[in-house]
Simulated scan of single mutants.
Amino acid sequence: MNSDRLLLIPASLGVVAFVWVFRKRLLVRTRGVEVDARCYDREWRVRGGGPTFLLGFRTADGRKMTCSANESDVPAGTRTGDTVPAGTRAGDTVKVRYDPVAPGRVETVIASRRPLWKRGDLIGLVVFEVACLAYVLG
């Protein structure tokens, strides 16, 4: 098998991943329901990186759901009497939007309002696709 043809395998998988991620984002944007989620914890997964916020919310039918969000996807927030943004902390409320058909598809409202071309995951997939196709065709 030609080695150039082998590059079509990851390129094809990249197209599938791009469509999958784009579809999720589009479904949450179009039919998403906005609810308040409570931040119940912050995790520091990567040394030197920002925290991951763990959020819990209830769907319209009463199911308990959880999700996580990056620091850029939650509000900076300020506390009463604070002059400097304090950031989201455990106990704070964060607005999320979920797909009622599949409540596992959930994003914070801040993330769902971000233009799709500003999404790092989509940009990374597009760059990977272009690189693979340029190599195969080039």
Rank of each mutant, 00 (worst) to 15 (best):
R105A: 05
D4I: 08
L7I: 11
L133N: 02
D36L: 08
C132N: 05
R31I: 08
T88G: 00
W44Q: 13
R119C: 12
L13N: 04
V21T: 06
C132L: 08
T80S: 12
E129H: 01
C39E: 03
P51L: 07
L116Q: 12
R89H: 13
R113D: 15
C67D: 02
T78F: 14
C67R: 00
L55M: 06
A17K: 06
F18G: 06
E129L: 13
R5K: 08
G91S: 03
G91L: 04
D121P: 14
E71G: 09
I123Y: 01
V74Q: 03
V130M: 06
V127K: 00
T30I: 07
R63G: 10
R47W: 05
A111G: 09
L133K: 03
S112R: 12
Y135E: 01
V84Q: 13
D82E: 15
G104L: 08
R63H: 10
F53L: 02
R38P: 04
G14H: 01
D73I: 00
D121K: 04
R63D: 13
A86D: 06
T88M: 01
V106L: 04
T93P: 01
T66N: 11
S12E: 04
G49K: 02
D82S: 14
A17R: 00
A102R: 15
F18W: 07
V101F: 08
L122S: 08
D121G: 04
L6K: 14
R42L: 13
V130S: 07
G49S: 11
A69M: 04
N70T: 14
V109N: 13
V74W: 02
F18P: 06
G104N: 05
W117A: 14
V84P: 11
Y98Q: 04
G124I: 02
A17Y: 00
E34F: 05
R89W: 10
V15S: 05
G124Q: 04
R114I: 15
P85R: 00
D73L: 01
K95N: 03
G104F: 00
L137V: 03
S72T: 09
V94M: 01
G48M: 15
L125D: 00
A131G: 04
R38E: 14
F18R: 05
F53H: 15
V101Q: 11
A11Q: 00
D36Y: 03
G87R: 03
F128K: 02
G120L: 12
G32M: 01
R113E: 15
S12T: 11
V127L: 12
E129M: 08
R45G: 09
K95V: 09
P85N: 02
A11I: 12
A17C: 11
F22D: 05
R105E: 08
T30D: 07
C132R: 03
G104H: 10
V136A: 05
G49F: 02
R45P: 07
T93M: 01
A86C: 10
L6Y: 11
D82T: 11
G91E: 09
G50P: 11
V46N: 10
A134M: 05
P103V: 08
T66F: 00
M65A: 07
A102Y: 13
R97Q: 15
V106Y: 03
I110H: 01
